[in-house]
Amino acid sequence: MNILDELFAKAKEDPQKVAFPEATNEKMMQAAYETGRDGYIVPVLVGDGPALKALAEERGYDPAVFTIVDVADEQYRDEVIAKYVALPDTRLKEKALARRMQDPLYYAMVMQKVGEADVTFAGIDNTTGDVLLAGQMIIGLKPGISTISSIGLCDIPGWNGSEGTLLAVGDSAVCTNPNAEQLASIAISACDTVHELLGWEPRCAMVCYSTLGSGAGELIDKVTEALKIANELRPDLAIDGEFQLDAAIVPAVAAKKVKRESKVAGRANVVIWPDLNVGNVAVKLIQQFGHADAYGPMLQGFNSIVCDCSRGAPVSEIKGNVVISAVRAAGQKK
């Protein structure tokens, strides 16, 4: 059973309510329908109610699988708004919120914030920027987290690391040139993400071109500063560095290069890149030379799970990402 099969099985044990604000899109509705019909999630379609109903019928879907929320239903909208504005630390007030909620993306996130959904899944019609902005405005960032970021999960054939063929890496997609504080946030969020999704005890390595002072310069200083911030903010997490990649994931190299106690060196299951240049190149190296499957990017740093899928994603990939986000949401509740 590969990792995706395992996650599908896990999702079925505790199906989460996933809000789909772009369900008029054919691929999105198909993914919502099939994951709902097969019991992995409870799909909630948010948008123009009558249009969604008609489309579902036209596409031959059993209407009993979907819950449809009509953004024109003022009574329900006002109930949701009242719950939202009563929450502490929310940004928008009634009037601004009602205006934003004409957009199903915002509507779905407000529902999620007040507990009417567990995940918002979008990105096929909205841009990544739209999803990130709505997420920051409505869902907000976790306390102590200064940036949205992402991780990917690599399944690398022939790799025998501390989690078998799996390695989580980040950020390879969202945060371009993080400062030390943001890099610390990426590491902390990544640890929480792998714990929610996979139940791992995270061992997180912050990597660059130096291992414990073997090199010097501002590129390394950023990483060591980030490590210090991460350790101060979350002493409960095993986040260590600075390590070169081999010292982070190969026990024999760690034994040579890391001459102090470390829970992480040589057995990291999460690797944090210093910036997006490294992250993007590294993931492509893993895919091209390591023939790996890379799942994600999984957005992290929000108070609850927001998922942005690729605009060109086929239905199979959308379904995989829906299930991953649902498992994360279930994991976050534990």
Binding site: R91, L92, A96, R99, G129, Q136, T147
Partner: peptide, 23 residues
């Protein structure tokens, strides 16, 4: 960071009833 700009855009929307795109 962008987080502060998001907060600012939200405040402007609340207080001045003007919707400014983040970009």
């Amino acid at each position: 960071a962008s987080v502060q700009m998001v907060a600012l855009v939200s405040e402007i929307e609340n207080e001045l009833d003007a919707m400014i795109a983040l970009q």
